[in-house]
Design a binder for these strands. Structure first.
Lengths: 405, 405
DNA sequence: TTCGAATTCTTCACTCAATGAAATAAGGTT
DNA sequence: AACCTTATTTCATTGAGTGAAGAATTCGAA
């Protein structure tokens, strides 16, 4: 079963505490009066709760506001140093690791190669990197709220089990437990794009947006989504396989075994393949997306065409997200957005052509490049998100599905 | 603003009341002890709440269970007659109307032609049909919890505004307000597939399933989804345009103005068109899907091919839902499922081919034909769903987004 | 400078839903 | 009939939130 149910009063207290904490976190420095208005709690309750939060160090009094004709308001804001998170992103050949504070600002960053793909090797690399990072950051592990791990693949966040990892060829690996067995800290594991999405939800453009999606384009093509203000994970964490939508039934084979997946048609490797297949002669072939962009900048028609084809497919894929989910915001992210307009223009064009009726009017787009540090921060954000998660989400399992219709 | 906030105690009371009511509604006849176990409330609270619900007529004591070696349990169940709902489904040429009880069992059904497509004509037809239905059902309008209206198109349920109706060519029509102005009852308007989905969630296969989708195939192709235990509507009610996914960039034109939409490729009219275009000679052309099925039964290769092509496209579309959302359940519904295996076999086949990795293992499928009565009941279900909706959903707007991470 | 009005924040008596334990009810078993 | 078992009700207790009164500031005008 789950934690012992201590009654509804405890729940409501925790709920309001969490509410106040999140309001302070999100809306920046606020006076108690403002918190009262935003939370719709009574002044007394706010006073009580903020006193507790101050006492425990979660928030801090920070100066006063401009006078408003009476007693000045004492502003409260989140104390970012109230806790730290360690984020780890697993790449194919290395892991990158960041220590962040509660605002997911980087305190320390390090990289470490992984010499092998077996669970033992990777887990011990993670453990040593985390230990190193905590020491280097000059904090005690008591201050660490937890460890977040992000990797490509299908992951069940609840259980911490990696159902499938394309890089490491893992199946049904209880990664969270393996790490937790060696470090006595809460460990959360999730798909890497989900960690980015959560971080965006907490501190990024996804602020207060009920429904939005994050799309990453790079070596693969991934997706994370927040629906009804909550990260959507689908059945066993299997949602968001955007990169494996079949967009061309007779298309090229994909690593996943199918044909014509978006990822096989439009990822960065697909762009490079596109050029290689059409220029089999001796001319210099691009090895990375940067080469392709350089070629396109130099006027290379084939390079431009390759990026355009890629953009067209991505736009077609995005139109499906718009038609099915109509999110308020789509964040375009990943390493691949550095290709700029070569890819973005056809994306927009395809979206206009394939999105239903006026749906596109309700969707805004943001371009946000992602590098290694951002991935690591995203994984740390997973831990911070857990810390600020509504107690309702945790309680839901205990009752007969509280929020259910 | 919203209703005056009377404090958290009221909320928690309402929450638990709603919880108990929904447990009784869903899990059939239950004793108070069983309710205690399911709700994790204390015996005293259950006693108090059930007393209230009994007093107000929402539930009823109904016999006793088999003895368990002590005092017998008094079973409680929902009193379906505690309220009635009127459901109206708008078709192109007529409206169908049903009065149902709280279990969405049909009490009365009637049809009425609509002579025109203007808002005035349709609204007055709705109003007269509803009045007639209430009288014929032999109930007082005081017992009616509300009126639910379902129609094809993009609808914002919150505001009751029809953003776009393909049949009637309405745009930004405040249909709920127009009806409410003539009948003093709560009016809820939503996309017709959403009403079906809600009803499925309340009393159908979607019972207790966190994430599921309902797909309807018929004159059009529609979709409704429940995600995180709640109907997902996207931005302004624009989600679920499954029928307008572009599955063939160079495909035939669709009524919506685009090309190659699933609906233009695989709906019932598309199947008929497929045959007409390939058999332009004098041989008897099918007018309805029933004709096509009859021809297929008679061994007509072209009819079979048309259904197979349709199924293949629907399967491809479904694979996108599986890859993006990975719901636990997909209900295949609508008039079109009567085509049986001619269409279902290629759907399954295409799904197997295009769904990512093992995702399909987590999805179950149910086939559930829909006729006019089912659509009308679905619309009534919209009202019932509102009656049983968690107070949290209503309160959410008042606070800073309670459930937010 | 002094007083009063305005505004923020704290304190405290009160309320009410939930709890938990004791009491009551009602059937079985020996 | 005495006794056990289970179901339900009753009730004193608990604790979070409320609302009003009070304390703390600040501004502005006499």
């Amino acid at each position: 079963m789950s934690a012992p149910r201590r009654g509804d009063r405890d729940l409501i207290k925790a709920l309001n505490r969490n509410l106040v904490l999140n309001i302070v976190r999100r809306q920046g420095p606020l006076s108690r009066t403002q918190i009262r208005d935003l939370s719709r709690l009574s002044m007394g309750a706010v006073s009580q709760i903020t006193a507790e939060l101050l006492d425990e160090g979660w928030v801090r009094e920070v100066g006063e506001s401009e006078p408003t004709g009476g007693r000045r308001q004492i502003l409260l804001r989140l104390r970012p140093q109230a806790g730290y998170a360690v984020g780890v992103k697993l790449m194919e050949d290395r892991i990158v690791c960041a220590v962040t504070d509660l605002e997911v600002s980087e305190v320390l960053y390090l990289e470490q190669p992984t010499l092998g793909h077996s669970p033992e090797v990777v887990v011990s690399a993670i453990v040593s990197a985390v230990r190193q990072a905590i020491v280097d950051a000059g904090i005690s592990s008591r201050q660490v709220l937890g460890i977040g791990v992000g990797l490509a693949g299908v992951v069940n966040m609840q259980s911490g089990v990696v159902h499938y990892s394309p890089f490491f060829q893992w199946r049904e690996l209880p990664l969270a437990d393996l790490i937790a067995a060696q470090i006595k800290l809460p460990v959360y594991v999730d798909n890497d794009v989900n960690t980015l999405t959560l971080t965006e939800h907490l501190f990024g453009a996804g602020h207060d947006i009920e429904n939005f999606a994050v799309i990453t384009v790079g070596r693969g093509i991934g997706m994370g989504m927040v629906l009804h203000h909550r990260l959507y994970q689908g059945g066993p964490g299997g949602a968001g396989e955007f990169g494996h939508l079949t967009l061309d039934v007779d298309g090229p084979p994909c690593d996943c075994g199918k044909r014509g997946c978006l990822e096989a048609l439009a990822s960065d490797p697909a762009v490079i393949r596109y050029i290689q297949q059409r220029r089999p002669d001796g001319r210099a072939l691009p090895g990375t997306l940067l080469d392709v962009i350089a070629a396109a900048d130099g006027g290379d028609a084939l390079a431009r065409e390759a990026l355009e084809v890629s953009g067209r497919y991505i736009g077609l894929g995005l139109s499906m997200i718009v038609n099915l989910l109509c999110p308020t915001l789509i964040v375009l992210s990943g390493e691949g957005v550095i290709a700029g307009e070569y890819r973005l223009a056809p994306i927009r064009e395809a979206l206009r052509r394939h999105a239903f009726n006026g749906l596109l009017d309700n969707v805004s787009f943001i371009i946000k490049p992602t590098d290694d540090r951002a991935w690591a921060r995203g994984a740390a954000g997973l831990v911070v998100a857990k810390s600020f998660e509504s107690p309702l989400v945790k309680a839901e399992g205990d009752r007969g599905g509280l929020g259910a219709t």
